[in-house]
Design a protein around this nucleic acid. Structure first.
Length: 508
RNA sequence: GCUCCCUUCGUCUAGUCAGGCCCAGGACGCCAGGUUUUCAUCCUGGUAACAGGGGUUCGAAUCCCCUAGGGAGUACCA
């Protein structure tokens, strides 16, 4: 067991976009596999035909791809256990269901969904919960209460049936979870879950056990919502006589405020994406925002997600994927759910952004610049990015912080005018423009020196001049060092802006 | 209701398995001060937590019990 090759799977259901909790589950599987030189498998669990959503599978694959999570086997990738889509494996499950019936671990049930609904309603009315179990199954329409001939006849007539697992009586199921430790459950509290549906498809419970066994999965790492069905799964392995894999149930991702599982609605309500990529619902046309489209870097996104529920035990916070693989261990995954923090997510992105090369950022920024119709050369754009990067969390914000590099101010901030514009400002600025025309070379260092000595020699106030100058060049009280801005704008544009600004403000 | 899981600053968490190094450390956020010709960054400082109650022990965030709170599951969904 310990020296079996490590094989893990991420097994999403293509019922919609993958939300960040699912991405984290995939990530932890991936980190665990790579850490131990194991194999990462993508299996699509689409046994519910009624919940099929077009595009969801592609969305999942593209999302994981964006995150840098790679699969060694799976849908699209192929591998020795293909196919990896459960609907393509349909023919295989009946055999296993039959085996369980033959060995007495499962039975046919002919109760209709309507009959069961009725029973549930009645139970609910008396504040009870209906369970299909050792006591109730004695009075229901199943093969346990029929002669073999009767069963055969019903099936022969084409009567719809399901196959249910027969939960053994009076036993304790002892389970070990890698994160939570030992968990014990009495079989009396379990119910006879459906394994095989009347539509000819297995349920998750059967399909997941059969496939995990066939695909030689060594560790099942999945969300905590599966913990309550772990006893059933253990019992299934035992019924088949198979060696069970190790299990690890990950804590949930919780909404930032209040309690409960993070859901799509929380993102809408609080204004942050809950999906890696933008998603358009094929039925309603509704659009959900994604991290990618919101300007997050995949490595920052992955870094943030990795630390939500796991920590390295050191004070390191920034991890590349390789470093995550190196440091990851299931032992250091916490037990309690983590509230998602959109603010810290932004901080992570900022950290990654300031570490990117100017060249890389400039290339990203150019897409935005292009759409605005500006064509700066690479060198200039890289300089601009250099000046701006510390001030933003996202590439698109570069425009908000630095549009003045490309276009003259459309308006001049009224507050700043009120505070800085004095009676003598117009004359001072006109004089400054004249002086600037003589400054050569027009680079940052030279300008810095020239400006200082000009202000001093004219016995003017540094703050007054510089702030007014900034107002004319930028339009507001913001932005990087002025000499840097002027150097990028160039002499001609700088002087032009001063003259235009003076003319405009004087008229106000 | 029932079953299972969980509980350290507002949030993510270290420390819990091997009790003393913890009047509890880091990060995000927030607040204040500093740097700066502006804004942002940055730097410094501050804010703020062992859910509650019993035990065990010389000593408990750490071990045991109880209570409370929260979460998940309870489908012919995954």
């Amino acid at each position: 067991m310990t020296n079996k090759p490590i094989r893990v799977r991420f097994a999403p259901s293509p019922t919609g976009p993958l939300h960040i909790g699912g991405v984290r589950t995939a990530l932890y599987n991936y980190l665990f596999a790579k850490k131990h030189g194991g194999t990462m498998i993508l299996r699509i669990e689409d046994t519910d035909q009624g919940r099929f959503v077009p595009g969801a599978e592609d969305y999942i694959i593209e999302s994981l791809e964006w995150c840098g999570i790679r699969f060694d086997e799976g849908v699209n990738t192929g591998g020795p256990h293909a196919p990896y889509r459960q609907s393509d494996r349909k023919s295989l499950y009946k055999e296993y269901s039959d085996k369980l019936i033959a060995s007495g671990h499962a039975y046919y049930a002919f109760d209709t969904p309507e009959e069961l609904d009725e029973l549930r309603k009645m139970a609910e009315a008396s504040k009870q919960t209906f369970t299909y179990n050792a006591v109730t199954r004695k009075n229901l329409r199943n093969s346990l209460n029929m002669s073999p001939q009767e069963v055969e006849q019903k099936i022969g007539e084409g009567m719809p049936y399901v196959v249910r697992f027969r939960i053994p009586e009076n036993r304790e199921v002892v389970m070990n979870d890698l994160i939570r430790g030992k968990v014990v459950v009495k079989t009396e509290t379990l119910d006879d879950k459906v394994l095989f549906k009347s539509d000819g498809m297995p349920t998750y419970h059967l399909a997941n056990i059969v496939d995990d066994h066939l695909m030689e999965i060594s560790h099942v790492i999945r969300g905590e919502e599966w913990l309550p069905s772990l006893p059933l799964h253990i019992l299934l392995y035992q019924a088949f006589g198979w060696q069970e894999p190790e299990f690890a149930h990950l804590p949930l991702l919780l909404k930032p405020d209040g309690n409960g599982k993070l859901s799509k609605r929380d993102g809408d309500r609080l204004g942050f994406p809950v999906f890696p990529l933008k998603w358009k619902d094929p039925f309603t046309g509704e659009i959900s925002s994604g991290y990618r489209e919101s300007g997050y870097f995949p490595d920052a996104f992955v870094n943030m997600l990795a630390l939500l529920g796991w920590n390295p035990g050191t004070e390191q916070e920034l991890f590349s994927m390789d470093e995550l693989i190196q440091s990851f261990s299931l032992e250091r995954v916490g037990k309690a759910g983590s509230k998602f923090d959109p603010e810290k997510t932004k901080w992570f992105n900022h950290q990654y952004l300031i570490r990117k090369s100017n060249r890389e950022l400039a290339a990203d920024f150019r897409k935005i610049i292009d759409s605005k119709g500006f064509k700066p050369d690479d060198n200039t754009l890289e300089k601009i990015v250099e000046l701006l990067k510390e001030r933003v969390n996202f590439v698109p914000e570069l425009w908000n912080e630095g549009s003045f590099f490309f276009q003259q101010p459309e308006t001049y901030d009224e507050q700043v005018i009120k505070k800085r514009w004095k009676a003598e400002s117009a004359d001072q600025m006109t004089a400054l423009a004249a002086f600037l025309s003589s400054v050569e070379p027009f680079d940052s260092a030279t300008l810095d020196q020239a400006l200082k000595s000009w202000i001093e020699s004219n016995a003017m106030n540094m703050g007054a001049i510089m702030n007014v100058l900034r107002l004319l060049l930028v339009g507001a009280a913001k932005g990087p060092h002025l000499a840097d801005i002027m150097a990028i704008l160039g002499k001609e544009e700088t002087i032009r802006r001063i003259q235009r600004g003076v003319a405009t403000i004087v008229q106000l």
